[in-house]
């Protein structure tokens, strides 16, 4: 029995000694990577009063940012979706850029990522157990597309530039699923999660 007590005490002392060394953050891997990558981010200037906006100018072109070979297949759809959502705010489209309360422009860009999944390692599962995997030594690539929407006020400038009063970044994996449907969903979501525009 004394040996067992000593064992318990010894175990505790080991834990004490190890605690500062082994303690680190522990994150369960839910597998959120490329398969479910559609993300909609919207940002705005808190000091800008969107209640004063009644008219908007919407550029008919979608700017290719960087790679000029990006397909234009979805350009019209992007513009139409933007027009629908801006009209739903109660705003009126005007074709006079300087007379409009706000200007809206859109752009697209893509980025290709290469992921090398090499080397062995361990991770901790939800219950705190560690699981170790061998070195599979493979790699894969994926490309994400981003649609950027910028809203500026022609009367509000910072130096020589027009700061965005509102902008949306719609990021998703290209080449998977129904891109047209995903674009419409993402643009609608960008406006839905920006109630301050109304």
């Amino acid at each position: 029995m004394k040996k067992l007590k000593k064992f318990l005490i010894g175990t505790m002392l080991i834990y004490i000694a190890a605690f500062p060394i082994v303690i680190s953050s522990c994150y369960y891997d839910y597998g959120l990577d490329t398969d479910n990558y559609d993300v909609v981010a919207t940002f705005y200037d808190k000091d800008y009063n969107f209640q004063n906006v009644h008219t908007y100018y919407l550029s008919d072109s979608v700017v290719k940012i960087g790679d000029q070979s990006i397909t234009s297949q979805y350009d019209n759809q992007i513009i139409q979706n933007l027009e629908t959502n801006l009209n739903n705010l109660g705003w009126t489209r005007t074709y006079d850029r300087l007379a409009a309360d706000v200007n809206v422009r859109s752009g697209v860009t893509t980025s290709t990522y290469v992921v090398y999944d090499g080397g062995s390692g361990c991770y901790w599962d939800y219950w705190g157990y560690s699981w170790c995997y061998p070195d599979y030594g493979y790699s894969y690539t994926y490309t994400t597309g981003t649609i950027a929407i910028l809203m500026t006020d022609p009367d509000v400038t910072t130096g020589g530039s027009l700061p965005a009063q509102w902008n949306a970044l719609l990021n998703g994996l290209t080449g998977t699923g129904n891109a047209g449907s995903r674009i419409t969903t993402a643009i609608n979501k960008a406006f839905a999660q920006s109630p301050y525009l109304r």
Binding site: I23, S25, C26, Y27, Y28, Y30, L32, N36, Y37, D38, V39, V40, A41, T42, F43, Y44, D45, K46, Y126, G128, K189, Q193, S194
Partner: peptide, 29 residues
């Protein structure tokens, strides 16, 4: 030491000056 996490496939997170939505995982240790 405690570990808490959740997965939200249609999550919405409010930031200081905006909102991010999409599949997300949240963690607190």
């Amino acid at each position: 030491y405690n570990i808490i996490s959740k997965e939200d496939l249609d999550g919405v997170t409010e930031l200081q000056n905006g909102t991010v939505s999409g599949p997300q995982a949240r963690y607190l240790n």
